[in-house]
């Protein structure tokens, strides 16, 4: 083992892949993210090299690597793999060592993970097959509206009326948007409607408790969804630090704890 043992967590998601590198004492040395692209193996290798570069380390310094996410089986240099449910729970418990419901909104799926006070997962729920309410949904509708992603939230903040897209299906939601455009709905209201729909799809998945932690790329890019979730549930809602990297962070913690 290297004199400077480092621990790498890799979260190979459907849209984005993320990496977190921990030092010997558990401190975060580097984070990185990139589009997953066509090959999980390539994304994993590039992320590993990226975080090692940033930390001024080499692959020989890696004491343990844990992979998670859809591509977790496609990381040839991983020492162990865990599902994203376990890794997100581990990351959330590190930041918030109390009973909580983790709401992770990713590129292709949504998760609710009920984490006990001791960090154990009590149960979890995932969205069904459709991507309605996920990051892919937000991207699709923004594309239909011809609004750049970075303009969605400022427009939503200017909304004057609450609307929610009701369909479970992303394609049919886009059809609903066309109908609303035809009826003269303002761009701000439509953008707010996208975020309302994201949260509506989450809330109908299952019961949420008194303390909610949010993670994933959607809340990282659009913090407004945390406010909407708090309004809809009446719960205390916190956003995990570096929410897009929570799964990778959890994987790195698992690596440090012996995989």
């Amino acid at each position: 083992m290297s004199a400077r043992p480092l621990y790498l967590g890799l979260d190979l998601g459907s849209a984005w892949s993320k990496a977190v590198l921990l030092g010997p004492d558990g401190q975060v040395l580097a984070r990185a993210a990139r589009r997953t692209g066509m090959r999980f193996e390539d994304a994993a290798g590039a992320l590993r090299d990226d975080v090692l570069d940033r930390a001024g380390a080499t692959a020989a310094d890696l004491a343990s690597v844990v992979s998670t996410g859809y591509g977790r089986r496609n990381v040839p240099f991983a020492d162990a793999r865990r599902t994203e449910i376990s890794c997100h729970a581990r990351g959330a418990h590190h930041h918030f060592p109390r009973e909580l419901d983790l709401v992770d909104i990713g590129g292709q799926d949504n998760k609710i993970v009920h984490v006990r006070r001791d960090g154990a997962v009590a149960n979890f729920l995932m969205n069904r097959k459709c991507a309605a309410g996920t990051g892919a949904f937000v991207e699709e509708i923004a594309h239909r509206l011809d609004v750049p992603l970075e303009e969605l939230e400022p427009l939503a903040e200017a909304a004057t009326r609450e609307i929610t897209l009701s369909s479970f299906c992303t394609v049919f939601s886009a059809t609903e948007v066309i109908k609303l455009i035809r009826e003269g709905e303002s761009p701000g209201n439509l953008c707010r409607g996208i975020f309302n729909s994201v949260i509506a799809r989450v809330v109908e998945m299952g019961p949420l408790g008194g303390f909610i932690v949010m993670s994933g790329g959607v809340v990282a890019a659009f913090p407004v969804v945390a406010r909407i979730l708090a309004e809809k549930t009446g719960a205390e809602v916190a956003v995990a630090p570096h929410p897009q990297h929570l799964g990778a962070f959890g994987a790195a913690l698992v690596a440090r704890e012996g995989g």
């Binding site: 859809y70 865990r82 599902t83 994203e84 449910i85 376990s86 799926d109 154990a120 997962v121 009590a122 149960n123 979890f124 995932m126 097959k129």
Partner: peptide
């Protein structure tokens, strides 16, 4: 059948379930 999603759910479940007794 979304295979990846189903397998992730089963694998995550198995990671959580203690052998020889209910969670």
């Amino acid at each position: 059948f979304s295979e990846e999603q189903a397998k992730t759910s089963i694998e995550a479940f198995i990671e959580q379930v203690p052998a020889g007794g209910a969670a």
